[in-house]
């Protein structure tokens, strides 16, 4: 079974090296592809220097959705069986990789999302962020009937069928929630596994307070549209 870890990175020179070493340390059997989304810092060079990952440089910044999709295109064309999405900022702990990958390996689901809230973990987040995530949990439950405790989590593993789907279509910005709804709508099985997440090692979250209002509206609209769209 061939596994690929997809790491989208935008200006993450401070954390990308450690993340790559950590993934390789815990899972030397997995291939890693870093999709550098037009970073203006040394992200690409740092990633290359480790010698642990394939590095794909997008010539301009296309946004998280387009960057992640590049990883899925790579996974699809190189025939990987499982693709794992992992953030470059050190939030996702590679020592937890098996928790989400095992669900896919055992064939229990087509997509497994690493959740901060499925079980009690030491992870702390602000009240407003927690409320925002809760809102999407309810919204997804409303439109699909499925309860996903951490739909905004970008720490997830998918199988071959989902790799092919995502290579063809992947939401453009703030894609995590919409992708889950799309999978549910298409009849794929989405599961969650409890993972521990860290607070960011370096860099800033892409979601500033100004953007969060847009985020809520855009994602809600996308979820509702995915519900009424003819997906099959």
């Amino acid at each position: 079974m061939r596994l690929l870890v997809i790491i989208p990175a935008y200006n993450e020179e401070k954390s990308i090296g450690d993340v790559l070493r950590s993934v390789h340390h815990h899972h030397p059997e997995m291939d890693i592809v870093v999709v550098n989304d037009g970073s203006r810092d040394q992200t690409s060079a740092v990633a290359r220097t480790t010698g642990l990952a394939h590095v794909i440089d997008l010539p301009v910044n296309v946004g998280i959705g387009g960057a992640v999709q590049t990883g899925y295109l790579y996974a699809h064309r190189h025939g990987y069986d499982v693709a794992i999405q992992l953030d470059a900022d050190g939030q996702h702990d590679p020592s937890n990789l098996d928790k989400i990958v095992d669900v896919i390996r055992r064939g229990e689901a087509d997509c497994c999302v690493g959740s901060r809230f499925l079980e009690k973990t030491p992870y702390k987040s602000s009240l407003s962020r927690r409320a925002g995530i809760q809102f999407f949990t309810y919204l997804i439950q409303l439109v699909t009937g499925k309860r996903i405790t951490d739909p905004t989590s970008g720490f997830r593993a998918v199988n071959r069928q989902v790799i092919r789907l995502f290579a063809e279509y992947y939401p453009d910005d703030y894609p995590e929630v919409e992708a889950v709804v799309l999978l549910e709508r298409k009849g794929y099985r989405v599961k969650e596994a409890s993972v521990l997440m860290h607070n960011r090692a370096a860099g800033k979250s892409s979601i500033t307070p100004i953007k969060s209002l847009y985020y809520m509206f855009k994602v809600s609209l996308a979820v509702l549209m995915t519900r009424i769209r003819n997906v099959s």
Binding site: H24, D31, R48, G51, H54, P59, Q69, T70, L73, Y74
Partner: peptide, 23 residues
């Protein structure tokens, strides 16, 4: 952009043997 980046990465690894060391 995606296709271009994938092609460039593939080209680079083929010509300069810029592959990850453990592979």
């Amino acid at each position: 952009i995606q296709e271009l980046a994938l092609l460039k990465a593939q080209n680079k690894e083929e010509t300069s043997d810029d592959r990850p060391a453990h592979r």
